[in-house]
Amino acid sequence: MTAHLLYGGAGILLFVLGVWSFLVHEALLRKVIALNVMGSGVFHLLIAIAERGSLPPDPVPHALVLTGIVVAVSATALALAMGRRLEDEDDAR
């Protein structure tokens, strides 16, 4: 029981840290990292949920985490590509 609370609590803590960092920092890279930390928090919580109760662990949250990671990677790539476009234009001036 304690272990689940610890894992779940850590997930929520990561999420909150991510939100805080997203809101406080200006730089794009920091914002993107903050979003990924938020995502890791949510995935952490999902894994904790999968392991609770009886064995074998619930496979549904695992599938959700995998899908979530794919989505997060694509979103991060798009954000970085757009950020790089802006940087390139700044350099060209």
């Binding site: 999420f15 794009l28 993107v32 938020m38 949510v42 549904v60 979103a75």
Partner: peptide, 24 residues
């Protein structure tokens, strides 16, 4: 649109945490 993307990601990640709580 980069700002729109970042804001949108913040929104959908928050939504996802709600989904996880409901599943839990």
């Amino acid at each position: 649109n980069l700002r729109y993307l970042l804001v949108g990601l913040l929104g959908s990640m928050t939504y996802l945490l709600g989904v996880v709580l409901l599943y839990a």
